[in-house]
Design a protein around this nucleic acid. Structure first.
Lengths: 197, 197
DNA sequence: GCGCTCATATGACGATCATCATACACACAT
DNA sequence: ATGTGTGTATGATGATCGTCATATGAGCGC
């Protein structure tokens, strides 16, 4: 428990619950999509009932926007952590290997939000799309910064292509019902994106 | 009530309606997703009421499977047509330019089904996933066949990467709320995928 | 300890959905 | 024309959903 901060009457009680709901929702939307994540189910999964929902969010859509942003942030943070844990020279390679790993293909619920929700984004509310855009730019910048040709002309364009390729390979590898094809997609994208020498 | 009468006064009447419903549904799922395409809405859009639906399909899911396959076939047919209309040497380039055109970014409803539904596929029924897998393979083969290095070792792998890059760029270009970024993604992917000389 | 306040629970409402039972209307053979 | 059968419409049912009004219970200041 928290007995530390005495600034506000009870700063953490409601906020902690709010946080837990958003965290749960961030996983739920990646698992079930925007439409498949019901209010009652999310609250139940967070250890609550559906009643108090509207004291935390003004609407279901508002919650979805928070959840989408959280999901995007979580995926980004995971990638950034992988990059930070690797030697600078191999940061990009480490990120790509993690992004195109079999574990990431199977772990939709905790993985990249753009891959899990990308094709649903065009019809989402402006708030959600803005979050997706911001997180996408972050991801592109992260890749660009770890690229060997950072700062050189065309580096940003190459980062765009790298992200597109990894995202497309992941989405396809998840979509198909054929293990061999799924693995072939991952391997082909990896061999193509990682400079072999 | 209905006995096994082998009498068909008009064999095409019902089939034509069935066809029209599937065609309508194929557009609806690309526009609204699998979950967002309701039975009543699809029937209404096909010029009917929701009542007769279950004389055409055994369930909503069965209809979705037909519609998904139809959507995949339509997207493929469009691409194949573009390829056929271009000089053989430029067939691949023509396909890529069409796939990554601004029109395709904006035309979700009549475009590539994998791009429109890709991130929803992992949680769909087996029938739907099988259709998606088959259509994906067709698309990869189509690209491989039009590639300049067709038959050479590694050509198939290169086709996998080409498809992944185009798909990822299209999904991202549609997802983001930023016109400039959307265009930059299309252009970057095109410049990278089309052999410039 | 007492009562006030806030976070959460209980329960209900209206809307929407897939599904099905039944009634109608049109086309064809006679 | 008339009746028969097939294709579609009308309407209902039960389930699920988002939303909200109200009740309950726990923690904090006095």
């Amino acid at each position: 428990m928290s007995a530390a901060t005495a600034r506000r009457p009870n700063p953490s009680r409601k906020e902690a619950t709010h946080e837990r709901i958003v965290e749960t929702a961030a996983r739920a939307i990646r698992r079930s999509g925007f439409g498949g994540a019901g209010v009652a189910e999310i609250m139940k999964e967070a250890g609550l009932t559906h009643g108090g929902f509207y004291s935390h969010f003004e609407s279901r859509e508002g919650m979805l926007a928070e959840a989408a942003d959280r999901a995007g942030a979580a995926g980004m943070a995971g990638l950034a952590q992988v990059a930070a844990a690797a030697p600078p020279k191999q940061a990009l390679e480490a990120m790509l290997r993690a992004y195109l790993s079999k574990e990431h293909v199977e772990g939709v619920e905790t993985g990249c939000a753009i891959a899990a929700l990308g094709s649903e984004m065009p019809r989402q509310a402006p708030k959600i799309r803005r979050a997706a855009t911001r997180r996408s730019k972050e991801m592109i910048d992260l890749v660009a910064r770890q690229s060997p040709d950072w700062g050189q002309p065309g580096a940003h364009e190459r980062a765009l292509v790298t992200v597109a390729t990894a995202l497309g390979a992941l989405v396809l590898a998840r979509a198909v019902d054929d293990r061999k094809l799924s693995n072939a997609l991952r391997e082909a994208a990896l061999n193509h994106l990682i400079p072999t020498d």
